[in-house]
Simulated scan of single mutants.
Amino acid sequence: MPIMVMDRGLHIDAGEVRKAFPQETVRDARDAAEALGVCADCEVLVAMAHDVTDELVGAMPRLKYICAMSAGTDRLDTLKNLKADVRITSGRGIHGPQMSELAFLGMIALSREFPRMQQNQRARRWERWPQKLLFGKTVLLVGIGPIAEELALRCEAFGLRVLGVSDARKEAPHFAALYPRSRLKEAAALADFMIVLVPLSDKTRHMIDAEVLAAMKPTGIIVNLARGPVIDEQALIKALQEKRIGGAALDVFETEPPVEDNPLWDMPNVIITPRIGGMSDVYAQQVLPLVVHNLRCFLDGRPSEMKNILRG
């Protein structure tokens, strides 16, 4: 069964897939444009979901299975040429370490005003001020899945009180309390830090709106590692401009990259990262065992044993 491994050299080594399945034909391409020339007979596509194009799936008439290496697969829902019977699995469950570390980068940098320190360094200015600690503060994780579970463990180790928002669960390890989404504003009012982790859907689009932001403490910091449209960006900009919240660390945006005149670029209490939350220097080692497991189950005719089945 021909397998197409499409990656830009950042997430997986096609050679490792060949080693795991020497009896199969494994083709590789750096991107969708390159894959178009060699994908016609492939029945399996291994790729990051956001790199899969409508043109590519349309050029794969025998496609039976997409093994997405990313946790978020909402891009696949927009593809008109993707047949309904194509099985899809995700890379859910491997991103806890890198997402957690980026969350801490945002929390610590904004709490300690690290951008101000960098400006002072460039200006050779020696300025000291009391340093705000994470210890003893409250963090609210909006969306409780594998990433939140790993992040909660790390937050607890830093001495943070961990709260969560989820309609799917009533308790989870390392959380002091969980709230349903209907009590999001109540939970937001308790948080020194609010970290957004929910996937994007019709129900979560602009879930963090003006009312939720208004419920936060004036010193509260929001970290978005989910999808840009989960937060009402215009409401966030207004809250930051009016200093009704303390700051924001944003890895995702409604438009990516943000347009040049987006006010977020120039705000001193905002840290912008270019959608790097899921990336790591060991991604290949993280994702390869999951990819190999799911491919083996699929090729052996054991689809029920595959992990992270989204469809099919």
Rank of each mutant, 00 (worst) to 15 (best):
I3N: 00
M4Q: 15
M6D: 03
D7Y: 07
L10P: 04
H11Q: 12
H11C: 09
D13C: 05
D13S: 13
G15N: 13
V17I: 15
P22N: 00
E24A: 09
T25V: 13
D28F: 11
C39V: 15
C39N: 04
A40C: 08
C42V: 12
V44W: 06
V44R: 01
L45K: 03
A47G: 09
M48L: 10
D51I: 05
A59W: 10
C67E: 14
A68W: 10
G72D: 08
T73L: 10
K80S: 10
K80F: 04
R92D: 02
R92M: 09
G93H: 00
G96F: 00
M99H: 01
M99E: 02
F104L: 14
F104D: 01
L105Y: 14
S111Q: 09
E113M: 10
R116L: 14
R116F: 07
M117H: 15
M117P: 01
N120F: 06
N120I: 03
R128S: 11
P130E: 09
F135G: 05
F135C: 10
G136T: 13
I147A: 02
E150M: 12
A152L: 11
L153F: 14
R154L: 14
E156F: 06
A157R: 15
G159Q: 08
R161A: 06
K170T: 14
P173S: 07
F175M: 06
A176V: 05
A177T: 11
L178K: 12
S182H: 06
L184Y: 00
K185E: 15
A188K: 04
A191D: 01
A191M: 08
D192L: 06
M194A: 08
K203I: 04
K203Q: 14
T204R: 09
R205P: 02
H206C: 06
A210S: 12
E211A: 11
E211T: 08
P218C: 04
T219I: 06
L225N: 02
A226M: 03
A226L: 03
R227Q: 08
Q234N: 14
Q241I: 04
G246C: 07
A249I: 05
V252Y: 11
F253P: 07
F253S: 07
P257R: 04
D261Q: 14
W265F: 10
W265P: 10
M267A: 08
N269C: 08
I271L: 15
G277Q: 00
G278S: 06
G278M: 02
Y283L: 14
Q285P: 00
Q286S: 10
Q286V: 02
Q286M: 12
V287M: 07
L290A: 09
V291A: 01
V292H: 00
H293T: 03
N294T: 09
C297F: 07
L299Y: 11
D300Q: 15
E305Q: 15
E305C: 05
N308V: 12
L310V: 04
G312S: 05
